[in-house]
Design a protein around this nucleic acid. Structure first.
Lengths: 207, 207
DNA sequence: TAGATTGTTAATCGATTAACAATC
DNA sequence: TAGATTGTTAATCGATTAACAATC
């Protein structure tokens, strides 16, 4: 496998294509970049470039084989095998994430939660047990978990992240609205609702 | 007010600056772009350009007045006055969003929820009542609500969005993983967890 | 005054879009 | 074959970074 350097915008569009392709009737074998582009309001060249980054190649006059394209995108995203994940900070958001059973499709399986609130410890949420935060590093090592999800308040996020990294976590999905300072080898992806809201309310203001 | 065209990346960074500035000790009156840039690992020029887009101007040799900068960013984002919002699709995610009391800081106030599940209707979540979806358009009109939040499954998102627009909703915060097709006057901002996960798992795959 | 920091103009970088030969 | 659609190279667009005169 050669190391294709794919741009972040491309990476963000691939899951959209994937869902779109999965929704296509099984009767349809081929789809053209022009068709996809039209449905997304993208440029056809951009669609072809995006798809090319997965290694899938199309056929002139026909387009892309829908099923192979689905497989190629899933493989490229790493969604063809599932990573176990721990989530720290068991509030409403974590409960929602733990209750959402479709992450497995996206290569993620939340296997347990962690908190410091004694009233939560020992409980199960959607069959995922909640442990005390003290047990995090030991369990990360024992279970070889590579992904950590942070849903604690902003003030605790940095120390939780450091604890995760110490235990051996390699990638962090961070829902806290701060910039984590971690060794560069650790993969961090931030979900920022406030940032998304900024775009919305700013546009709304000018209406 | 002149129409400053500000880039999306800039718009996404402004909330980060805002939170950062609010965390600064009240003893500190001025902060330099170099200091901010350093803490975010950004380029100082970029920080100055971002801040300039809010209309705030700094002082040579001193930097930016922290408090006026906070005010300027809040005003620019439209977070100095609050928009009421309705949320449709009362599952775990909606419950989390309705339970989160800090959106008011971001100019958003969720005032009611809507669903079609009879067992939910009439209930209150964090003092926000749940109504039947049938009542949506009437209530949008009566209460002049401009913002709608979509947390229904993907298959229902388009029709819910159309219902919102019909009622008079002007901006939609969409958590469903599809591309809504709406008149261009309607502001749409998508929150896509799968997209964020794509970036994470793809990086993880190459580790 | 000297020099730190600003705002702005110019250069660079990267992503999107246009053009087009190759091909099925 | 003719022509629709591909993959790729070149042009454009927009955002980031570098350079630097103005200024407090």
């Amino acid at each position: 496998m050669d190391i294709r350097k794919v741009s972040k915008p491309t990476l963000r569009r691939l899951p959209l294509y994937l869902r779109y392709l999965k929704n296509i009737s099984p009767d349809v074998q081929y789809i053209s970049s022009a068709q996809i582009a039209n449905d997304f309001n993208y440029d056809p060249t951009q669609v072809r470039k995006d798809l090319a980054s997965t290694g899938e190649i199309g056929t002139a006059r026909k387009g892309f084989d829908v099923q192979s394209l689905i497989n190629a995108i899933e493989k490229f995203l790493g969604w063809d095998n599932v990573n176990d994940a721990f989530i720290v900070g068991i509030g409403n958001l974590a409960t929602a994430l733990m209750g959402f059973n479709h992450f497995v499709q996206y290569g993620l399986n939340i296997v347990a939660g962690f908190d410091v609130d004694q009233s939560l410890i020992g409980k199960s949420i959607n069959n995922k047990k909640v442990f005390h935060l003290e047990e995090l590093t030991a369990l990360v090592q024992r279970m070889h978990v590579k992904v950590g999800i942070i849903t604690v308040p902003a003030d605790y996020a940095q120390s939780v992240a450091e604890l995760m990294v110490e235990g051996g976590i390699k990638a962090i999905w961070n829902f806290a609205p701060i910039e984590l300072k971690l060794p560069s080898r650790v993969v961090v992806e931030n979900v920022r609702l406030s940032t998304s809201l900024a775009v919305l309310t700013n546009k709304l203001k000018n209406l």
